[in-house]
Every structure is written in structure tokens, then in C-alpha cells.
Amino acid sequence: MSAVAPEEVPVIPRGVRLHHDRVRDQWVLLAPERAVALDPVGHAILAEIDGSRSFGAITESLAAKYDAPVDQIAADAGGFLRSLMDRRILEVA
């Protein structure tokens, strides 16, 4: 599977959290024995994940917020989230 389906609900699993590193003034995704530095786009995507909204609803929200085409947001965000899922840092409900 290469992308995230619109009906899937992305979930940040237990033990993984978004954290603002004040020393580096950067957002990171902390997982057991791992830390993933996030750029502003990655943070914007992950900040939308609440464990209840579908990927389709998240992409629509991001598209409205950033005035961008939904299909472009879905492609970019889907690839990013899929890479986190492949590394077992993100799940779908």
C-alpha cells in the first residue's frame, strides 16, 4: 500500500507524541528510542491528527487552511504518513 485511504483514521499510538524542543526551537515526533525532526509541513499534518477524523477530513481541513488543492495535499500528506506507518510510528484505526 503506497498511500493512506480517505476513510482511514490515522492515530498517533500510545508512547508516541508531538513535542516542541525548546532548545532547538523545533517540533519533533518522539517515539520509543527514536525522534523524528519535523519541518513545518510535517508538524501541520501531524497536528491535525486527533484519532477520530478520517484522512479525507484531515486533507480537506489542510486544503482549506492553506488554500491548496485537496488532491495535492492528499498525495503529499499520504506519502508522509505512510512513511511513518512503515516505520511503525503511526497507525490507522
Rank of each mutant, 00 (worst) to 15 (best):
V23G: 12
R53M: 07
P13I: 04
A3C: 03
L30H: 09
E91W: 04
E60R: 15
R82K: 07
A35R: 13
D76L: 12
L84G: 10
H43T: 02
R82V: 01
A5Q: 14
V11E: 05
A74S: 15
V23M: 13
A68F: 05
I58K: 05
S54W: 02
Q26M: 15
E8T: 10
S54A: 08
A68G: 00
H19T: 09
A3R: 13
L90G: 07
Q26K: 14
G78P: 02
F80T: 04
A75N: 12
E33C: 11
L29S: 10
I49G: 04
I73H: 02
V70G: 01
R22D: 14
A44K: 00
M85F: 03
A68P: 01
I49L: 08
F55Y: 07
A74D: 08
A31T: 06
P40S: 12
E48G: 07
L81E: 02
M1E: 13
L18Q: 06
P13N: 04
H43L: 04
A3D: 13
A93E: 05
R24Y: 07
I58V: 13
G78S: 03
L81Y: 02
S2H: 12
D39F: 04
V36M: 11
A77Q: 03
S83L: 03
A44M: 00
A35Y: 05
E33T: 14
D76I: 05
H19R: 13
D76V: 06
V23H: 13
L46C: 11
P10L: 06
V9K: 02
R88S: 14
A37D: 11
S83F: 00
G56H: 13
R17N: 11
D39E: 08
I12Q: 14
K65Q: 08
T59S: 06
A44I: 00
A64N: 05
A93H: 10
R87V: 00
S52E: 12
P6N: 13
P69E: 09
G51R: 03
L29I: 04
R53Y: 06
E8I: 01
L29R: 03
E33D: 15
L62M: 04
V4S: 00
R14K: 09
R34M: 12
A63R: 06
K65D: 01
L30M: 11
Y66D: 12
A68M: 10
D50P: 04
